[in-house]
Design a protein around this nucleic acid. Structure first.
Length: 273
DNA sequence: AATCGCGCCTGACGGC
DNA sequence: TGCCGTCAGGCGCGAT
């Protein structure tokens, strides 16, 4: 599924192609995404150029003179930059055509994705204003996480996946980071000491950076944003490997549910304290 | 204030 | 083959 590294990868690929380009048409075939795609989008973006493209958490932001298009890929969303026209497939919900004839195609089988519009600074939008720091920025550090965790009884895994605490860390990277830091996913957030938080933050940044470096995808069938195959599948150490030997100590990896999400860990390398 | 559980959705997969 | 149940999951939201 699209995690932060994948969104970052898409951003890097499409930004040089579309920033400065004028939108000719936007076609919404399926307005029923997580929230309805605003019918007024055409009015605001057609005839206008993309001024900038940014990422916040897993949200992609397309800046126009008139406002900002906010895009989230949800669970199963793909964004591709097509160089030639192709017949829309079953889940191709939105197409954005540009003056240079290329177009962005948003495909999302499960429709957990979202396409929204704001006339204001998107960082003040209700969906973005409550987001915690970006995990790769310096504000996200051991001291911050440790301080924020004081008095919290929630499991460290839920805590890490709470976007108000830190933006854009999903199930896969929370699982991997906790393994790399040697922390049991059920440990109450408030019980972890500062040193371990520093290690955990390092682990989060390392897995995210590594994933971005490798092309950032976890989807087996993922295609590059121009539609050609090519991304590396990043190597995950334990996610999705329940029952397989721990890569560190060879003990069979365990699988549990934490807040309705499957969680893999090693009972020897990640001790509950 | 913090936490929990629900619901939105489709496709993959296993069992019969 | 095909039908059905189960699972997967990001994330806002309402309930506690």
């Amino acid at each position: 599924m699209p995690e932060l590294p994948e969104v970052e990868t898409i951003l890097k690929e499409i930004a040089p192609e579309i920033v400065g380009q004028t939108v000719t048409t936007i076609i919404t075939r399926t307005p029923r995404l997580r929230w309805p795609v605003p019918a007024t989008l055409n009015k605001y973006i057609e005839g206008h150029a993309v001024q900038a493209l940014k990422r916040r958490g897993k949200y992609l932001l397309f800046y126009f003179k008139t406002g900002t298009l906010i895009l989230h890929l949800g669970m199963s969303g793909h964004l591709r930059l097509l160089k030639h026209h192709a017949m829309p497939g079953k889940h191709d919900h939105v197409d954005i055509f540009f003056a240079h004839k290329k177009h962005l195609r948003f495909n999302d089988p499960r429709r957990f994705g979202a396409l929204l519009w704001t006339k204001n600074d998107p960082f003040t939008h209700p969906l973005l204003k409550t987001l915690g720091p970006e995990p790769l920025e310096d504000h996200f550090n051991g001291k911050y996480l440790w301080q924020t965790a004081q008095g919290r009884k929630v499991s460290i895994k839920s805590f890490l996946m709470n976007s108000k605490i830190v933006a854009g860390i999903g199930n896969i990277y929370a699982t991997e980071a906790l393994f790399n830091a040697g922390i049991h996913p059920l440990t109450p957030a408030g019980k972890i000491n500062k040193t371990n938080y520093e290690q955990l933050v390092k682990a989060c940044k390392a897995v995210l950076r590594h994933a971005i470096k490798s092309g950032g995808t976890t989807l087996r069938d993922y295609l590059k944003s121009d539609g050609t195959p090519g991304h590396f599948l990043i190597e995950l150490k334990i996610y999705g490997k329940s029952g397989e030997p721990c890569p560190r100590c060879k003990t069979a990896l365990q699988s549990i549910k934490i807040c309705q999400r499957s969680t893999v860990y090693c009972k020897c390398c990640q001790i509950l304290e």
